[in-house]
């Protein structure tokens, strides 16, 4: 049970075994993905044929298209980045506005609104996707019927992907930023105002710097969630596929280890973001 109570030897042994088994379960899939990115064979499968960097550097002359020569794959990474930047910007901006709305203002129906803001988190991603798809298409249809305007951005494509992801990532940003604003000591603002600072100056020099860790944290989370989103994106995607959709398509066909190479890349990038966040979080606490 707990360290202060006597624990029989078998229980201690079982605990250690369990932790080892659990961590193996957790990391085995990631480890094989990483290892087979370097296997000198056309498919990511055993046996081990020796070490190669072909799946990173290979070009068509070598018969193996590596990650850095695979324009389709590189293009989809770029697409994902563009989408993620948009989603992050929109989500953090709206999240900040919502935080001030919920923590600093009073109006009738505020309770209902705060409940409503949580709703996007309990709607399955696929359904968010189809509802936005259907609504946007009907609007586009309406536009062309009534005014003869072709509203192409309402057809499946990247603008809709951005909106679809934003619709629920904004809710997460709102929660994160509100939670920090709630803990803010408002007497600091009063002190600044008493000392003659204007309201915008207080916001810029006192409140926003205090919110900084939450802003950075929610931006990183928004970027990552957008980059990795699959369900909503699948329903809204048009011609340009973001990376997850591209990988999904290739995985169904049985792809070469170039997918392992790109996955390894993603792992390193996620790890970098995670470490920065954890460090940042620790600095904010101390």
């Amino acid at each position: 049970m707990i360290p202060t109570l006597p624990r029989p030897a078998w229980l201690r042994a079982a605990t250690v075994l369990y932790v080892v088994a659990f961590l193996t379960f957790l990391f085995l899939p990631l480890a094989v993905v990483a290892v087979f990115a370097f296997n000198d064979a056309p498919y990511p499968a055993p046996p081990w044929h020796g070490f190669t960097l072909d799946w990173f550097l290979g070009n068509e002359a070598a018969g193996r298209v590596g990650l850095f020569r695979d324009d389709e794959l590189l293009g989809s990474i770029w697409t994902s980045c563009v989408v993620a930047v948009w989603v992050t910007g929109l989500s953090v901006a709206l999240g900040t506005a919502n935080a001030f709305l919920m923590e600093r203002t009073r109006f009738p129906g505020k309770g209902a609104l705060s409940m409503l803001m949580l709703i996007p988190l309990v709607i399955p991603g696929v359904i968010l996707g189809i509802s936005i798809l259907a609504f946007a298409s009907r609007l586009a249809q309406l536009c062309s019927d009534l005014f003869g305007i072709e509203a192409d951005f309402l057809r499946p494509g990247l603008p809709l992907v951005v909106l679809g992801q934003f619709s629920y990532i904004a809710a997460i940003a709102t929660l994160t930023i509100s939670a920090r604003l709630k803990r803010f000591d408002r007497t600091l603002e009063d002190a600044a105002l008493n000392l003659g600072a204007s309201a915008p100056a207080v916001l810029w020099t006192i409140t926003l710097p205090y919110l900084r860790p939450a802003l950075i944290g929610s931006a990183a989370i928004a970027f990552l969630m957008s980059f990795e989103n699959f369900n909503t994106t699948l329903m809204l995607v048009g011609g340009d596929s973001p990376l997850t959709i591209m990988m999904y398509g290739r995985m169904r066909e049985g792809a070469t280890p170039v997918l392992n190479a790109v996955s390894l890349f993603l792992m390193l990038a996620s790890a970098a973001i995670a470490l920065t966040l954890i460090r940042g979080g620790r600095r904010a606490q101390s």
Binding site: P29, E228, N260
Partner: peptide, 10 residues
């Protein structure tokens, strides 16, 4: 922190 796609590939 790693995408679900990558974990499924694993």
């Amino acid at each position: 922190w790693v995408s679900e796609t990558v974990r499924t590939l694993g």
